[in-house]
Structure formats: C-alpha cells, structure tokens
Design a protein around this nucleic acid. Sequence first.
DNA 1: GAGTGTGAAAACATTCACAGCT
DNA 2: AGCTGTGAATGTTTTCACACTC
Lengths: 208, 208
Amino acid sequence: MKNKIPPASVERLPLYLSCLGDLSAEKSRVSSEKLSSLAKVNSAQVRRDLSYLGTLGTRGVGYEITTLKNRLEIELGLVKGWNTIIVGVGNLGSALAQYDGFREKGFGVVGLYDVDPKKISSQVAGLVIKSTEEIEEDCKKYKVAIGIIATPAEFAQETANSLIACGIQSILNFAPFRLQNIGNVNIRNVDLSQELQVLSYYLDSPPV
Amino acid sequence: MKNKIPPASVERLPLYLSCLGDLSAEKSRVSSEKLSSLAKVNSAQVRRDLSYLGTLGTRGVGYEITTLKNRLEIELGLVKGWNTIIVGVGNLGSALAQYDGFREKGFGVVGLYDVDPKKISSQVAGLVIKSTEEIEEDCKKYKVAIGIIATPAEFAQETANSLIACGIQSILNFAPFRLQNIGNVNIRNVDLSQELQVLSYYLDSPPV
DNA sequence: GAGTGTGAAAACATTCACAGCT
DNA sequence: AGCTGTGAATGTTTTCACACTC
C-alpha cells in the first residue's frame, strides 16, 4: 500500500510540517513558493516532495494548509503517537527527557533508565529513573516503539542490542558510536561533536 | 589551495576519525575493509573518501593509523581548536555546555548567554551565564568561530542575525526553525523532534 | 596475495521548464 | 493569470570491478 517515498524526501517532510505551523492562521492556502521560502529549499523540490503524497494541490491556487498538514501527519505516522524511552540519563539524556518538542509531536517519553545506582530512583521530568534491567519488561508493557540512546559511547552497542532484543523498532542514537544493526531496525545517529567537526571543515583555515 | 571534497564525503570524515580512535593501540595499520566495518559504510566508499585527501594508503598494505588521523584532523581544521558560544541556556543549552565531546575535539565553549534575568549571573559548567547583549563584545574578544543556538524557535532567527553581525563564521542550530542565511555563513540544523518524525515514518503503521 | 586508487556504471537527487488545470 | 505536477536534463553520490603497487 505505502508507495515508497525517496529517503531524501522523507527527511524534508517534518520540515514542511513545521513550516506549516509557522504560517499565519488567517491564510487557508499556501503556495510551493511560499513554503519553499520558509523551508529554504527550491520550490520545485517542494512540489516534487509533496507530489509523492498524492495530488494534494490545486493548479493555479496552491495547497490547502489544513489538508496538507493532516496528510503529512498521516504519512509520517504521527496521528497515533508513539511511546519512547531514554537510556542513559546524563546531562543530555535528562535534557531530552525534558524536551517539549517530543511530546508536542506525539512522542511520549514513558521511561528513563541508567546503570548508575546514584541516579536510579531519583526523578527527572516527572519520571523515576529505573535500572536498565527493567527495560525489557517496560518495553512490552508500554509498547515502546522508539528507543533513545544517550549513554556513553562504550555502552551504546550493548544498549542497542538489548533494545532490539525487546522488539523496539527504531533507535535514535546520541552516543558517538556507530551502532551495528543486528536485526531489522531503523537507526538514526545524531553525533553532536561530529556536527561541529563538519562546520570546522568549512571554517576559514587559520592563517599560516 | 583547498581541493574541494564533496559534501557527502566531508560529512563522513569525522566518523572515520572517531572510528580510528576506537582501534586497538597495538595495530599501526588499518585497511579500508576494517574501517568500513567500524563505520558501517561500503569499503569502496571509504577508499574514495580518503582518496580526496591525497594518496594516503599503501597498496597491498592499508593506511597508517597515525598518519591518517593527523591528516583527517588537519583537513577538518581541528588542529588549532575553535572557540564556541552557546546562546540559550535551557535544558538543552546547559547539557551542551557540559558535553565533554566538544572540548575533546578542540571546541571550547567560552560563553553562555540567555535573556532570562533569573539565569543571568548563575553558573553552568564553570561559566557564568551572561546577557545576550554581551555577545558582540565577547565574540570579538575571544575570536569566536562557531555559535550554537539553543533558544526557543521564536528567538532563533534574531539570535542568528546578531551572531552573523558579530562576524561568526558558522552556526549550529538546535532550534526547530529554518534559519535564513543572511551573509555567507555556514549553518547546520539539528532538529531533535524532526529526527523522531523521520523514524516514525519508517515505523510499522498502526494496525487498522 | 593483499589491499589501494579510480575509471566507468548505476543509482539517486535536484532543478529546469513547461504543459495542463483552475 | 497563476500555480501545480512532472518529463527531461543535469548534477551528485554510491558501488562495482579491476589495474596497479607493495
């Protein structure tokens, strides 16, 4: 049923959704040109991307904002909402636990886990931090779809392995380590220091 | 002088550098096959990427680890180190301020800024949070190269504008807003909720 | 024999430019 | 007249496969 959308397009769909939210509520329609200026991509790209979702626009007129929003949310699977857990409650993990953007888009954080006995039983963002040993039971109980890894690099792979063993479908990995994908899981890596290193490449070289 | 490396390759260079660090110190050489298994990319890709840096390997032998590391650090401009500042010291901003990965790769955080009077003058990660009004002076004083934006979406653009006005060369933007690039600045966006949304697309659709 | 470096092919992504609909 | 949807052109990235060197 699901007609395949190219990966590069999928990556931009959330962006369009977010840009639609920034639009004034007075307007009911938007053109590819307008969306393209908000999202900072070529307007032909916008039209091509949206065309993968079906025939949504009206020639000579543009796209109906509400319809487009709904369609994007359906396509991205945001309608139902998904449960997530965070493993590793250091600085980054607890910042993520408190990040409103997740909940706003329907991603509820239902569990926090750590190996540090000093952290276990304390609370962050209204959740009690539990031992990583409880992950498996909780994943089943709460039907967790996405696991967020915010552990140090050296524990990332074993964390991923146990998440996969629990039947988790997707992993968002913040640890600076390239996970091996046992099984058929979707993994996205966000490596903060790598982002800075890429920027560094494009910085003017220091004077000789 | 700088021969152009394709953007897709540049994005992988920090990954290779990180994988080299994971290698046992006993070995002095590494093959593209070995690197490819650590970085989880095709081995032809590794060889192609590294070939952009010059002729670094030895046929039949592999790459000298130390030489390769040095070359990558030079190419990425990590040798000298760069000063950064963080604007917006909420949960995410303060997690970033405390993130060791930045300092380890030579990115020193030299300033934290916020608009909230309750935060100003308090300390995070050994730094006093200052008013955003002090950004301009500090940027010049400390020769800041990279600005990290961790403000709410609604303040992201004005923050970017003032960073650009201060002569900052690159921006790492964590606010869920697509910045308009006034001037000739390099911008990278990291949108946490968008990452989850992309994963959501690939999740099994909820049963009907 | 082992493993790099790279032409050439294939796959993928972006952009142009315009026919076609409202 | 205005703006979408999309063939066709162009550009970029990945992968294959092998000549070449150590």
